[in-house]
Write a protein that binds this DNA or RNA. Sequence first.
RNA 1: GCUCCUAUCGUCUAGUCCGGUCUAGGACGUCAGGUUCUCAUCCUGAAAACUCGGGUUCGAAUCCCGAUGGGAGCGCCA
Length: 466
Amino acid sequence: MQNNIRTRIAPSPTGALHVGTARSALFNFVYARKFGGAFILRIEDTDTLRSRREYENEIKAALEWLGLAWDEFYRQSERTELYERQLHRLHDDGAMYWCPHTIEELGAERAAQSEAKAPPVHQCEFRDAERGADGDGVFRFKNTADGDIVFDDLIRGEIRTRADLVGDFSIAKDFKTPLYNFAVVVDDAEMNVSHVIRGEDHISNTPKQLLLQQALGFGRPAYAHLPLVLGRDRSKLSKRDGETSLLEYKEQGYVPEALVNFMALLGWHPAGDTDVFELDALIRDFELERVGKAGAVFDIEKLNWLNREHIRMRDVEKLARELEFFVPQWSDAIAADPERWRKIVETAQERLTTLASMGEQTRWAWETPDYDTELLSWKGQEERPAIARHLTAIREKLSLLEDWSSSSVEAALRPYADAEGRGAVLWPFRVALSGEKNSPGPFELAYALGKDETLARINHAITHCT
RNA sequence: GCUCCUAUCGUCUAGUCCGGUCUAGGACGUCAGGUUCUCAUCCUGAAAACUCGGGUUCGAAUCCCGAUGGGAGCGCCA
């Protein structure tokens, strides 16, 4: 196993953690863990106007929720001396210059180039001028490379770009305000990042960063560009496609294991036919070589299925604790009888798609059933006296029952139900307990409700019929 | 407009590097049956794809060329 693997996720705190960014974080984390390396969280907050600390906190919370613990943490806004020093080095080498053009001028130039079918590259007449930062303008890297800029992508193979098409790109607003491409290069080198694993929307930034690395005398990390996460319309996932903020999924009742599983499947697949797996297995089986090249559509149906699967695999006690958050209206009842709550959770567990559906899924547990008497009738064909007779028989058998479990209740009633007709007996029994047309089975309900409540609800139903 | 990336069922994908075992496999979803007092689950089954055109070859989803489609980037954002 290699030990010098260092990966990073570098979000900018200008919004919540995006699903695409979270997926990149996951792959970086997994890759680092697999080789016993370090996973770095670097907040790219050089854009002081848009960066906000509350977003940074949200991003951290989301990563923690997913279980992606970082080993090192940095904030670019706290590293300005470093960038300044490197900026001066470039400046002293004559590798950058001050471009005084306004944004309007640059926009006009680009429009003209588009019109003339020319490549959109800024031709600055000041690239050889000796002048510092003043007024409008920006520092640009003086790109003197010729031929192709080539790098080997771990996922895509060789990628080459014509150097003259890269042009003189901006690297800083002034000596104290570096721009993205510059800060990234300095940080990746300074942090000894060994593998840059990021979205494919960064492919076109890579040649610029390569040029900068060379000019500064830095080494080159390995690159792996992930396919993009796409929306229904196959364009980059956006708000229109539903939630793009990871924490939103938490609030909607998705479990982190499902998100991790789902995001891993967006572009990667284990060698076998397994679709359901957890982080440990992902770390064990992950291979960058098995990451696909084409964009992957975010399919909420598959996420829902995975969420169901992971909820079903969950430890009941743990699930019970997580579920409490989603039924605040019953927190007192839960605190009063935690054992009962655990039984309710047990009954609901395999029926939950999201944790948030717990409320409607277990209304029967908290509210006294309120139903029309007709609902007690199996297929609307049983008359009231018959229903009352069945319920009375059930009451008699159950009141004698000592050991109260789903299977003992079933064993006590099965012969009678078989003799009288299962539907005719079990349907009114279940409705008496749940008050619902659709609900978990009567034996499970009886178990979760407990003997006293079960008998009380049966009595209530009997009075309905007489 | 320029550049780059990309292309297997509706969706995620296996297979592509090392051509034949692929009448293309799995999963989600869909549909149909079955189990079940109901719903959900569960079980069985079905429909569903190699973008197109050339070439190489005895043979191509797999190799080569071209076209087309899709995506991304082109910022004094990251």
